[in-house]
Design a protein around this nucleic acid. Sequence first.
DNA 1: CTGTTAGCGCTTTCAC
DNA 2: GTGAAAGCGCTAACAG
Lengths: 340, 340
Amino acid sequence: MHKGKITIHDISKELGIDSSTVSRALNNSPRVSKKTKEKISAKAKELGYQRNSLASKLRTNKTHTIGVIIPRISRHFFASAIAGIEETAYDAGYDVIICQSLDSYEREQKLIETLLANRVDGIIISISMETTNYNHLDRYKANGFPMIFFDRPCETEKNTNVIIDDFQASFEVTEHLIFNGYKNIVHFSGPQTNLLYQNRCKGYKAALKKHKYPIRKEYIIESKLMEEDGIENAKKALNLPNVDAIYSANDMAAISAMQYLKSQNIKIPEQIAFAGFSNEPVSAVIEPSLTTVNQPSFEMGKVATNILFDQLNNNTRENKTTILEPTLIIRNSSSKTNNN
Amino acid sequence: MHKGKITIHDISKELGIDSSTVSRALNNSPRVSKKTKEKISAKAKELGYQRNSLASKLRTNKTHTIGVIIPRISRHFFASAIAGIEETAYDAGYDVIICQSLDSYEREQKLIETLLANRVDGIIISISMETTNYNHLDRYKANGFPMIFFDRPCETEKNTNVIIDDFQASFEVTEHLIFNGYKNIVHFSGPQTNLLYQNRCKGYKAALKKHKYPIRKEYIIESKLMEEDGIENAKKALNLPNVDAIYSANDMAAISAMQYLKSQNIKIPEQIAFAGFSNEPVSAVIEPSLTTVNQPSFEMGKVATNILFDQLNNNTRENKTTILEPTLIIRNSSSKTNNN
DNA sequence: CTGTTAGCGCTTTCAC
DNA sequence: GTGAAAGCGCTAACAG
């Protein structure tokens, strides 16, 4: 019986082979004979040897691990992005550590510290909505630590971002509503702390402007990304005159708003048409007529990871911004038929 | 300028203080004077010192990290359980590594290897649906490595499990349907590889038996936990005569089945009543009349983590099974009114 | 093909 | 209150 963990030295002693050879064998070095390898791996299995990655990582100064920080895993968009990240990473022999910031700046900061203390090789991050200054990031970027931002852009000139063209997508979905006869389009926006919601808001305004529709401040309803917000948003929208369409740039608000409207027996899209950003499969279930801009979440994850690997392998750190194409999903014709 | 990472030795040299003192100071040891501590932490900040957790963990043989393996983060139940785990762990100063098995046995095995190689202090796991033998777990449990199973029970006599009483919950929801006048209740079940779905199935049968209703094999429809399965399930159910209620023990199947039925304009619950397990908030949105058994996912996470900490702190490994109470949510009266 | 040796960055006795 | 020295488990020159 052995107390504590088995090390290569235990194998070494039992076999009378030096621990360096054991190490090489276990790493499948070509410089060890097949016979020795077999003996060693047999003994390793017998003793229940379990490699100590910490020691290995410390020694080699390589962890083969990437850190991922996202607001919440429960959001479909992020869960799907993670799937893309993991697939790409695992294929390349990398491990992935997933962390949630819960959209808290403080937590985000701590997570970055922890990931760096654990010497991850790079970080893929979608910054929290509370994050308005980037001091906690600049320090590491200055040292050439690879950081890839996705979904929520971060100073696009100075960083590597993987995003969609939020302005354009927002413009198109708004115009889609206009083409279908809707005039009084409420916009549910998100926290204006981040470029993402700023750009979506700009796209909405630009579409209105192009078609010479008025831009009314009270028609732009801002909120956080919480489920509760949707109900508030819906109530506010109902208090406005003549609303015939809602374009929500914010999944959470959209879904819970629809839920609320339904519970009040306010039908969608007969009285109100919904359109908006959403990767939540639920939205289609709640309202099959919903028009949505689906972001390529899985692909985003893959692309971000590949860019990170590029940077790691070629030791480059260029700050390019990659823009992916979203998909406008028009589930059925939701034209406005009655002109009241 | 310094190339590479700053270590305590860099601070030590710059200050002419031994690295052991630097280490003590950085760990806030009471055996270092306040003045020295201040000097050291100032210099650390100045140099951009970033502690190397790997070295620390290797040396102390303590990682203050727990591993969590769940099938998928995108499932609301698991995302919520993770929230409970993280909250408890962070409060205790522990880090959490989240991994998804994607319900693959092979992947689960590898993840366990990786977590153990990284010397996590314990693992909280909800085993994959493909997992039918526990060899990959027994080896570590035999060594006294702490493993807490939750949601999906694993050999309850031999392990520490945190579960709900699936039999009882299933019995109650089935009986609830019976009390409301439903007679021909289809049961959507999950993979029979795991006790969980076995027990839910038994509960269903027991309720029928108690009320002297026939148990018909074709009324029990088994499937995996995939979204696609729901559609198949729904089709199968529609082919059966006289179905007036469906009790799904499987969230995914339930949701996509409802989605399918809706798309076919088959109304719920007028022709068919649904009831079942679900922590997905969406279910309430899709069908406000749905009766569901909600599992205390967040609490499960907290409880599992606390049990793990108990075992770690008191160095005990008793195999008790903790049974939590689910909530039967009856959203509105879904009695069968017409007796056709 | 295998052994010797040094050291990754940190903590922790043991001295003083 | 601080320093000296050893070592966690592993890998990687360098020899032979």
